[in-house]
Simulated scan of single mutants.
Amino acid sequence: MVHHGEYRQWPFLNEEEFDLACAFFDQRYVRAHLGPTRQIFKIRHRRIATTGSSYVEILRLLQLPKEPDELSALLEGLGGDWVESAGSEMQMDSKDEDADQEVLRPDSNELPSYTPYAQQPYVTYEVHLHPTYRLPTLWFTLHDLPAGEPAFDLDAVYRHLVPPQYKDNLRALGVTGGISAAPHPITDVPAFFIHPCQTKEAMEQFDCVIDKYLMMWIGLVGGCVGLWVPPEMAAVP
């Protein structure tokens, strides 16, 4: 079945279509039975305060805890002020969180706190609609890397994010079409992104309803920098 009628111009998105795609993607995360995965992989549908434009924020730990209780021990070790100031985030890491969707939606006026991942290297991905290409664009930044290792460094990206099978192809693409750097669309701080110039050709080969648009798009774009959607999200009806 062809679903292109859901879009004004497939595979491009206007602001309203992108906003809807972000909302559907966020709801898949909320409804999926992720279990422990939710401790190391977090998704938020966000809005830019000055414009109201949607974007998706995804956080992933770079190193999985070696023991099941290791992350819990780290959280307990923080103690004190953080527990009081970010109680809603602690609820999100509770063992039974998948049974209660209410705890999965923090106060929309509060920014998510990533303090529990102190001393744990992590990556923040963001999906923004490109103003010229009218396609989703994947931005990403590294955080809390080992001492002496710069976060804004292409070699660090290849070490921590790019799987071996993608490294040669990405390097061959160079700046255009591969990993690029530019001021972040919100903070204006230098960040990395995957150039969207080849996204149209990749997406045109497929067909999907708008509630699965970002699932498909991440499947095509995200893997080269270590971003995959948990299969439990794909299983959500």
Results as ranks from 00 to 15, higher is better:
residue 1 M to W: 06
residue 3 H to Y: 05
residue 6 E to M: 03
residue 6 E to Q: 01
residue 9 Q to T: 15
residue 10 W to E: 06
residue 10 W to M: 03
residue 10 W to Y: 10
residue 11 P to H: 09
residue 13 L to H: 04
residue 15 E to A: 06
residue 15 E to Q: 09
residue 16 E to W: 13
residue 16 E to L: 13
residue 17 E to T: 02
residue 20 L to N: 12
residue 21 A to M: 01
residue 22 C to E: 04
residue 26 D to E: 14
residue 27 Q to R: 14
residue 29 Y to F: 02
residue 30 V to N: 09
residue 31 R to Y: 00
residue 32 A to H: 01
residue 32 A to F: 02
residue 32 A to G: 00
residue 33 H to K: 14
residue 34 L to V: 01
residue 36 P to S: 09
residue 36 P to V: 11
residue 38 R to F: 01
residue 46 R to G: 11
residue 50 T to A: 10
residue 53 S to G: 08
residue 55 Y to C: 13
residue 58 I to Q: 03
residue 62 L to Y: 01
residue 63 Q to R: 14
residue 64 L to N: 02
residue 68 P to L: 03
residue 69 D to G: 06
residue 70 E to Q: 10
residue 71 L to H: 12
residue 75 L to C: 15
residue 75 L to K: 15
residue 76 E to N: 06
residue 77 G to P: 01
residue 78 L to Y: 14
residue 80 G to R: 08
residue 81 D to K: 01
residue 83 V to E: 10
residue 84 E to Y: 02
residue 84 E to D: 07
residue 85 S to V: 04
residue 86 A to C: 13
residue 87 G to V: 06
residue 93 D to R: 15
residue 93 D to E: 15
residue 94 S to K: 13
residue 96 D to I: 01
residue 97 E to C: 15
residue 101 Q to W: 13
residue 102 E to I: 14
residue 105 R to C: 12
residue 106 P to H: 08
residue 106 P to Y: 02
residue 106 P to E: 04
residue 109 N to D: 13
residue 111 L to G: 14
residue 111 L to T: 14
residue 117 Y to H: 11
residue 117 Y to G: 08
residue 119 Q to P: 15
residue 120 Q to A: 11
residue 122 Y to A: 05
residue 123 V to Q: 14
residue 123 V to A: 09
residue 124 T to C: 07
residue 129 L to D: 05
residue 135 L to D: 04
residue 136 P to I: 01
residue 137 T to I: 08
residue 138 L to V: 13
residue 141 T to L: 05
residue 145 L to A: 02
residue 153 D to N: 12
residue 157 V to H: 01
residue 157 V to P: 00
residue 158 Y to C: 05
residue 161 L to R: 04
residue 163 P to C: 04
residue 166 Y to M: 02
residue 166 Y to V: 03
residue 166 Y to T: 06
residue 168 D to F: 11
residue 170 L to A: 04
residue 172 A to E: 14
residue 172 A to T: 11
residue 175 V to C: 11
residue 175 V to M: 13
residue 176 T to C: 05
residue 177 G to C: 04
residue 178 G to P: 02
residue 184 H to C: 10
residue 193 F to W: 09
residue 196 P to H: 12
residue 199 T to N: 12
residue 201 E to H: 15
residue 201 E to M: 14
residue 201 E to R: 15
residue 205 Q to F: 03
residue 210 I to C: 03
residue 211 D to E: 07
residue 213 Y to H: 05
residue 215 M to D: 10
residue 216 M to V: 08
residue 216 M to K: 08
residue 218 I to V: 05
residue 218 I to H: 00
residue 220 L to Q: 06
residue 220 L to H: 07
residue 222 G to N: 06
residue 223 G to S: 09
residue 224 C to T: 15
residue 226 G to E: 03
residue 226 G to M: 08
residue 228 W to D: 11
residue 229 V to A: 00
residue 230 P to L: 03
residue 230 P to Q: 07
residue 235 A to T: 00
residue 236 V to L: 01
